[in-house]
Write a protein that binds this DNA or RNA. Structure first.
Lengths: 129, 129, 129, 129
DNA sequence: GTGGTCTAGACCACG
DNA sequence: GTGGTCTAGACCACC
């Protein structure tokens, strides 16, 4: 399990934690009934306030992605992976829809936006090498 | 000149106004030294708070995209179009970088994100027919 | 609109706030599209921390009971009343089921538990006179 | 002696154990000077943490409901039954008072709450058939 | 050790 | 003025 917080992102930290945990579950890094890091531990690792982590965990719990084992911590729900894969998909679909919607409203042509997209994709691919 | 506000968007209203005005200038809908709508008029047309419009106009002014004609209103600067075209480009590049950055952090593959992008592009194209 | 917090209750304060707001909506004290008290105001009235109120309000929002008017506050959703009436019902049904379940497990007879119930009902009725 | 733990209950497990033991004593399933199950045995039977059972037993001991037989275990005090019957009564009275108090604060009418109560009573009676 | 609640106070974005 | 985020630190219940 490997989490990454981008403090420069417009997304609030607690939402990034939610997403990253979901992604970890979606990719199978944490399996059903396995425990996720404790609030305090994750807070220490990410160097953020435990309350921020707790808030993210609370959201995951009310969503039914994880469940509490009283006194011992939080574990991934049996149907967690399926939901997380779906969520990830939905998340990016929404973002892309917004992006393209704005492009349309700004009269950017289809080919212009596609070019930008492909260029950025290629550039980031290069970065990761 | 044709503006469109999406109240459901995560972008704050005043930013949408800024963008839409810039886009109008970039596409040539308003030309240098032409006047843009008054604060009150635009607020009425878009059914939003005049303060919000005023804030957007203030930003455009400090950016030098528009200039004041004492007593009569605001007009597009001579170098407005060039700057707006550049801004629009920068705006979308940043958005796309964020999107792809998040996709990477979530372990979404290049082909998955591209598929989503192309599907949404095709879907919205269909909608506009 | 009239809210009452019982600091001696086993229910956490923020949940009491959620319930009381829901009850106010259920009984029609606040109508759809009407605004509910601001976070700071309610915190002052109830003499609790604004964060506690904010947490309750956040929950109501994610439940779709209220919606945000950016920069101005929170208002009751169109379908808020219906949902709140249903919620209130569900809440008490669950509590009663738990109570009677425990009574059964403790081998308390039906008549014994009914007697207690009616006595308490009568006693509290007397109190309110 | 027959104990039942509801892991979905909002009551903590150790309290459920205390209650169930008390109820067993109240109904005469275990008589004065008879021994109650050992910590390990009960933990095994209920499939819960021995620490949880130990905590419940400690509470029963400090309340004087049970006493230690050095080296052999715990037995019911001579005045155990009387105290347990009283405790059971007090427990349910408190619960009912809370329930009706909340119903009042939520503006639920006397007849509404009574109807719910009687319906649940009838439903659970049906279930046990 | 675990999560959960609550307080206090700072800062930001929005209208 | 509004809500939203984040930090810091205290206290509690549970296992």
């Amino acid at each position: 399990m490997f989490l990454e917080i981008d403090s420069g992102s417009p997304l609030p930290v607690y939402e990034q934690v939610i997403l990253q945990i979901k992604f970890s579950i979606a990719t199978g890094a944490v399996r059903p009934d396995e425990m996720i890091p404790s609030v305090r531990e994750l807070a220490r690792i990410l160097a953020i306030n435990p309350n921020t982590v707790a808030r993210a965990y609370r959201a995951l719990q009310t969503e039914g992605i994880v469940y509490t084992c009283r006194g011992t911590g939080l574990a991934v729900s049996p149907d967690g992976p399926a939901r997380c894969i779906e969520d990830r998909s939905q998340f990016f679909k929404k973002r892309i829809e917004q992006l393209i919607g704005e492009a349309n409203r700004s009269w950017l042509s289809e080919s212009e936006i596609r070019t930008m997209f492909e260029e950025t994709l290629a550039a980031q691919k290069e970065d990761r090498k």
